[in-house]
Amino acid sequence: MTRFRPCIDLHDGQVKQIVGGTLTDSAEGPKENFVSDRQPAWFAELYRDAQLTGGHVIQLGAGNSAAAREALSAWPGGMQIGGGINITNAAEWLEAGASEVIVTSWLFDQDGRFREDRLRELAKEVGRENIVVDLSCRSTKQAGEAGWTVAMNRWQTLTNLDITSATLETLAEWCGEYLIHAADVEGLCQGIDGDLVELLGGWAGIPMTYAGGVAGMEDLQLVQEKSGGHLDVTVGSALDIFGGSGVTFEELLAWNQRSPETP
């Protein structure tokens, strides 16, 4: 059954919602949908009090370590941590209160080639069950055929790793969960990538969380239907606590509390 998972996205030490495809180092900076005047701990405490498990804190670039630690300290063991995770700091973040570490760019070399040996090493270092592999991707549709390729470096660099059932099956040996942002629709509040959700739900080997494009409660229902309930979902820019008008936090709590028989 699809459930809502919370998030805290950090940029320059602040809680923000950013249009995914604009997260670059250019002079004008990324396009921001929302910048909070609340501290990261406020959001972590909100999720803790609501007993929303399996959420994540993402560091979007440098300068977010202190803010991330603040969020984790507010709910030790309650949220995953991602952004800049590698084999030298993964254990440290787990000790700082992260439930799991989310790893992305470190799994690739500078040219975007996947390094499976690094994932194996990390699993041996901290345990497969403590690793979430981030397979956030961009559409690489060709000749009318849908396709997605994992993107690293804040979703700006395409790698050589495509999102397929075979990829999901292979990497699942070395991690306990997947996180997948659909970067092309992230932050736009114009609907989910239904084809990607369907592909992911069709595999359903280990827990997975989808993020990107949710505009209203109907999109949660779509994720439920297209994934067969095998995919959880994160809501960002559309959510009222992030300045959105499409979904309220109370609606999402009610969604999670529904019975398995509820359509």
Rank of each mutant, 00 (worst) to 15 (best):
residue 11 H to G: 04
residue 244 G to T: 09
residue 154 R to Y: 07
residue 139 S to I: 01
residue 251 E to K: 09
residue 76 P to H: 14
residue 188 L to G: 01
residue 119 L to M: 01
residue 101 V to M: 04
residue 168 L to E: 00
residue 190 Q to H: 14
residue 217 M to V: 12
residue 240 D to R: 08
residue 244 G to H: 13
residue 35 V to L: 12
residue 160 N to H: 03
residue 46 L to V: 12
residue 135 L to G: 00
residue 47 Y to D: 01
residue 19 V to E: 14
residue 204 A to H: 09
residue 211 A to V: 11
residue 166 A to C: 06
residue 59 Q to K: 13
residue 187 G to D: 11
residue 258 R to E: 13
residue 259 S to P: 06
residue 238 A to G: 12
residue 62 A to I: 09
residue 38 R to M: 15
residue 136 S to F: 02
residue 221 Q to W: 10
residue 138 R to I: 04
residue 15 V to E: 03
residue 64 N to D: 01
residue 123 A to V: 03
residue 184 D to V: 11
residue 153 N to C: 12
residue 237 S to L: 10
residue 193 D to W: 12
residue 245 S to E: 11
residue 27 A to Q: 05
residue 34 F to L: 05
residue 158 L to D: 01
residue 123 A to P: 02
residue 52 L to S: 05
residue 122 L to F: 05
residue 82 G to S: 07
residue 260 P to T: 08
residue 244 G to N: 05
residue 182 A to E: 05
residue 209 T to M: 05
residue 148 W to Y: 09
residue 167 T to C: 07
residue 189 C to I: 13
residue 181 H to L: 14
residue 40 P to S: 08
residue 232 D to M: 06
residue 257 Q to N: 14
residue 245 S to Q: 08
residue 222 L to K: 10
residue 35 V to H: 07
residue 243 G to L: 02
residue 77 G to V: 04
residue 48 R to K: 12
residue 18 I to N: 06
residue 180 I to N: 03
residue 236 G to C: 04
residue 215 A to I: 09
residue 95 E to C: 12
residue 113 R to A: 06
residue 184 D to F: 15
residue 253 L to P: 00
residue 66 A to P: 00
residue 219 D to A: 06
residue 83 G to Y: 04
residue 220 L to I: 11
residue 12 D to T: 07
residue 199 L to H: 05
residue 241 I to Q: 14
residue 37 D to F: 01
residue 260 P to S: 05
residue 141 K to Y: 04
residue 216 G to N: 12
residue 213 G to L: 15
residue 162 D to E: 10
residue 33 N to I: 03
residue 8 I to V: 08
